[in-house]
């Protein structure tokens, strides 16, 4: 098999059980799938279906209880804490539903944040930050504190921050969940463009409409995969689809 055909993500019989000592709650139960480089996958499911838990494990933010997770063919358990932090920094980008921006901090400083933990030379930081901000169309807001921005603008800041290290894969956890439909469409448009630019995207959503903007939908129910199919009629945000 050529290198290109190796999956970026390979999950085998992965489970996550939350155990508080008295009650153990299974969140993800024995899921298996692979995601190739450059794919745009939506993970869909109702609240409590385990989709966020799965995304957190895929993004190295949490650990599975059992099963195997291979990232770039290497088992997650083989990485040290420092390695995991480095991979999160260099190869992964996160977009959260609640934006997770630093308060009382400018757009510029928020977007630059991953760079201060990276191995990229400081002399390149400014240029990379400006480019990422331009990509999401917020150049005119660069020196604004994020608290002064609208929800849609804040999410664009978060996207710029996710992009800045040129990650291989972008994890978006309900990125439009806190936005009105217009802002949501802009965000989804940006995410679709990122995919077109070659980024692998894993999108978590509970909305069917939004999930159909991906190439492939994995549907979860009660922590298990109930379907894994390609989208026959893809929707495009720039055509004004969202609810």
């Amino acid at each position: 098999m050529s290198k290109e055909n190796h999956p970026l993500i390979l999950v085998k019989d992965l489970s996550k059980i939350y155990d508080n000592g008295e009650v153990s709650t299974p969140a993800v139960q024995g899921v298996s799938f692979a995601i190739r480089k450059g794919e745009f996958v939506a993970i869909i499911g109702a609240s409590g279906s385990g989709k966020s838990t799965l995304l957190h494990i895929l993004g190295f933010l949490d650990k599975q209880s059992s099963g195997d997770y291979f990232f770039e063919e290497k088992a997650m358990t083989d990485y040290s804490e420092e390695d995991l932090a480095l991979i999160r920094n260099e190869k992964m980008g996160f977009i959260f539903q609640s934006f997770n921006l630093l308060k009382k901090t400018t757009v510029f400083d928020n977007v630059r944040l991953p760079l201060i933990y990276s191995r990229i030379k400081e002399s390149q930081w400014n240029q990379l930050t400006v480019e990422a901000i331009e990509k999401v169309g917020l150049a005119h807001r660069q020196n604004y504190e994020t608290a002064k921005l609208s929800g849609g603008e804040r999410q664009r800041v978060a996207i710029a921050r996710a992009l800045i290290n040129q990650p291989q894969i972008i994890f978006a956890d309900e990125p439009t969940g806190n936005l009105d439909s217009h802002s949501g469409r802009i965000i989804m448009d940006i995410i679709q463009k990122l995919h077109e630019d070659g980024h692998t995207v894993v999108l978590i959503t509970h909305e069917k409409y939004t999930s159909e903007m991906a190439e492939r939908i994995i549907e979860l129910k009660d922590g298990q995969i109930v379907s894994d199919s390609r989208v026959s009629q893809r929707r495009f945000a720039r055509q004004g689809f969202i609810k």
Binding site: A85, F94, N100
Partner: peptide, 10 residues
């Protein structure tokens, strides 16, 4: 949590 997600080590 955010800083760690973005690559900060312990």
């Amino acid at each position: 949590g955010l800083r760690k997600a973005l690559g900060a080590t312990s």
